[in-house]
Design a protein around this nucleic acid. Structure first.
Lengths: 246, 246
DNA sequence: CGTGTTTTTGACTTCAGTCAATTAAAGTGG
DNA sequence: CCACTTTAATTGACTGAAGTCAAAAACACG
């Protein structure tokens, strides 16, 4: 029997199918997308604000985040990305980047030429719709972050971030454990929730004292997701997600 | 000569064309979209978190905003809408609303059945792409709001909100004056920038003392947009907008 | 081991929140 | 047109959550 090497885009394809029913032709087209892979060290930039975008990256392995730098030099992280997510559909469609994209951990990407994406959308409307929906869910997450940063106290903000990450991570691998590791330093968490690293440290220690998380080696381990969720009355509707996320 | 009554969607159509070249057939299809109009009083809700969405509204006249309510009852406004903008393409595509939509001032809407939108996208891919781009720009604005709330001090946050509004308002009517009226109470501004009404009042008085704004009757008048922009080094790249907004 | 992050701590400051009362506007009805 | 109600804006005194600074400890890693 002939074994065909699986495209690294299979996971991405699965994510799309999650949103919209695709047929074999659609699936084949996604998996046949041309790409080159690249592996980056933690913290490496691969898109900077102002860049003209000529390709669209799918995160194959590892974690990444997007950020903005404001006038005074402060950084705000605006989203965190898990494997099999498209990192800059947003930038790609709009041609010029309005934010930076960086790796969190060591990560490998599949870099797809912009034209190939447009071509795919053109020939496979269902795929285009699925991609649109994915960007809409990202927008929903942005809204939740606005509310998180704008209206929740420090402890709740951090807990919310951790919950969201834990749920999204679990959604990738529903059969796995619910506890998980978020590979972010306290400084990065601070930049994601609009606090200072010192204050994040104080709050994390509180969560740690309640046995909800532990910290080690530039990562936070979320040990008791359920209790963490309950403690902040976390609602996952904004993730518009598959059943196991509701 | 036969005069055809113009569709109220002409402005919306123009907005789409701004993003993507459309042909006469596309244009005709947009303008021919079925709709009913509705006029709402200030503060009226027309979508609530959790609603199942069966239609998509275009704001014809007046202003509107979207908001979320968190566990403790606090409200966070996540976006502000101007005439000719689609108010819930986002919700519409995702079927269930993750946030509320309310009018700011008295407003009239064109309510378009969801199916008609899907049909339009289906038959006119260029229109679909233009709509997608519009939702992507909204996402870019969400990111900027995250950075605004997360990393700017109170005065800068408010000034940024005012600048953004002034620019977007001016973009609708480039020949008009740059000064403009934002029909929001100080409490609403507070909910948009993640502050308390009391503190917004203090900051607004500072801006007012510098001659940048005046307040009257539940509205803020932005009198000197250029100086306001300069004072916070406002950059409009995130609006991905037509030349006159850059 | 030594070096550079990352985390932790403590003392101190400040920006923004809270509370509560006052004033000012806008709208209503007689 | 004026009392009457309501909503929005304003003020001042006080509090407190989060920021700042700076130094020490703890890792992680070559």
């Amino acid at each position: 029997m002939h074994v065909k090497r699986a495209s690294l885009l299979a996971g991405f394809c699965r994510r799309l199918e999650h949103r919209r029913e695709l047929d074999d032709v659609d699936r084949a087209a996604i998996v046949a997308l041309p790409y080159v892979t690249k592996t980056l060290e933690p913290g490496a930039y691969f898109v900077r604000e102002g860049d003209r975008i000529t390709s669209c990256c799918v995160l194959i392995e590892g974690f990444a985040f997007r950020s903005k730098i404001i006038e005074n030099g402060a950084r705000q992280i605006v989203s965190i990305h898990l494997p099999d997510e498209a990192l800059d559909l947003q930038n790609c469609m709009l041609a010029v980047a309005d934010h930076n994209i960086q790796t969190l951990s060591r990560a490998t990407l599949a870099i797809i030429p912009r034209d190939a994406i447009f071509d795919l959308i053109d020939r496979h409307p269902a795929v285009g719709l699925a991609m649109w929906e994915i960007t809409l869910i990202e927008a929903s997450i942005f809204r939740e972050w606005i509310a998180n940063i704008g209206r929740r106290p420090a402890l709740g903000r951090i807990a919310h971030l951790l919950c969201e990450f834990a749920l999204r991570a679990h959604a990738i691998n529903p059969s796995g454990p619910t506890s998980c590791k978020l590979p972010m330093t306290q400084e990065q968490i601070a930049d994601a929730v609009g606090l200072t690293p010192v204050h994040v440290n104080r709050m994390l220690k509180e969560l740690s004292a309640s046995g909800l998380v532990t910290m080690r080696k530039g990562s936070v381990f979320i040990s008791d997701v359920d209790r963490l969720r309950a403690s902040i009355e976390f609602s996952a509707t904004y993730l518009h997600s598959a059943p196991y996320c509701g």
